[in-house]
């Protein structure tokens, strides 16, 4: 375990450095002169030089990478081109909206998905079970922005019962929560299907096992087998999947935040990209990637901690 942990952590550090390098070189992938693209055709040569120096583009490339990495490690991601505010400040304003959204979506996925899965397992092969299997495929395959658009059409356009623009005010929790309903549901839908399916399969695999058959023969009550053993076994993989889901939600959040005009990290990124505001793009994408890498790491480690069998498999393969 210790070797694995060390290797995994070392790998994470290397990947984070690789991500930073990639982001710091992003500007150079632009065909043509990045500064002229940023400033537009009307810029005077003097202005171009000023911005070039400010972006550090006249330094040798290794120095540019070094400066970006060192800056990022010190919490300095540069200044927004247009508003001259520090990028870290923009990110700090955006993060809470995204994090609240993602966590609400996951909570929703667990609260709806687990009971659905339990119900389906309870009535295996019933009509309800089959209908649910179909529904969960539909849910799992539905991209969150499509779910967002459909929810918006039904609840904001047709029924006009839920707000679809902005976040409401933070000071008024009820207002904020109401604004959260549609975007969080849109993000949760995939995971509801996923969790329902996972819970059903894990429960059924326990219920079909030899020890359950033997216990039943010995007179252990169904209720105990079902809720105490089978459900417990299903919860562990579900939590692991949900914790890795937190990372995946960020990708979906980008489009969902645009659709519902929520000033989160995703919207910050997209707006910066369309304005060619490179420092903001670099900073926001770096934060998203860090979040993604770290939650994946945590999910991986916690999964290993809860389920010792994974360790055994690992040493058997010799990875």
């Amino acid at each position: 375990m210790a070797t694995y942990l060390l290797k995994r952590l070392g790998m994470t550090v290397i990947v984070v450095l690789a991500v930073m390098t990639f982001l710091s070189l992003l500007v150079h992938l632009v065909p043509g002169d990045p500064v002229e693209i940023v400033l537009g055709p009307q810029a005077t040569p003097a202005q171009v030089e000023v911005v070039r120096a400010e972006m550090g583009l006249d330094n040798p490339i290794p120095i540019q990478v070094w400066d970006f990495v060192v800056g990022a490690l010190q919490g300095d991601l540069g200044l927004d081109f247009l508003s001259r505010t520090p990028v870290t400040q923009l990110i700090a304003q955006a993060i809470p909206h995204t994090v609240v959204l993602a966590i609400t979506a996951l909570a929703l996925a667990a609260l709806v998905g687990i009971p659905l899965g339990v119900y389906a397992a309870r009535r295996q092969n019933s009509l309800a079970d089959r209908a649910m299997a179909l529904l969960s495929i539909g849910f799992i395959t539905m991209p969150s922005y499509i779910a967002a658009l459909l929810l918006l059409i039904v609840f904001a356009v047709q029924l006009d019962v839920l707000p679809a623009v902005g976040t409401g005010s933070f000071a008024n929790p009820l207002d904020y929560a109401i604004h959260l309903v549609l975007p969080a549901s849109a993000l949760a839908i995939t995971w509801i299907g996923y969790v329902a399916r996972l819970v059903r399969t894990s429960m059924l695999s326990v219920l079909g096992s030899n020890y359950v058959r033997t216990s039943r023969a010995f007179g252990v009550r169904d209720r105990i087998i079902f809720y105490k053993w089978a459900l417990k076994n299903a919860i562990i993989p579900t939590l692991a999947v949900l914790s890795s889901g937190l990372a995946d939600l960020l990708g979906g959040a980008v489009l969902v935040e645009i659709i519902f005009s929520r000033p989160g990290l995703g919207r910050l990124t997209v707006e910066a990209i369309s304005e060619r505001n490179f420092p903001v793009v670099q900073g926001a994408v770096l934060v998203i990637a860090l979040f993604y890498v770290l939650t994946n790491l945590l999910a991986d480690l916690s999964y290993r901690l809860v389920d010792p069998r994974i360790r055994v498999e690992e040493s058997a393969v010799g990875a």
Partner: peptide, 15 residues
């Protein structure tokens, strides 16, 4: 290390 939509977005925007 990037959500695929985010990586694709950044790359397409740049290219």
């Amino acid at each position: 290390a990037f959500p695929s939509v985010v990586l694709a977005l950044v790359l397409v925007a740049v290219l």
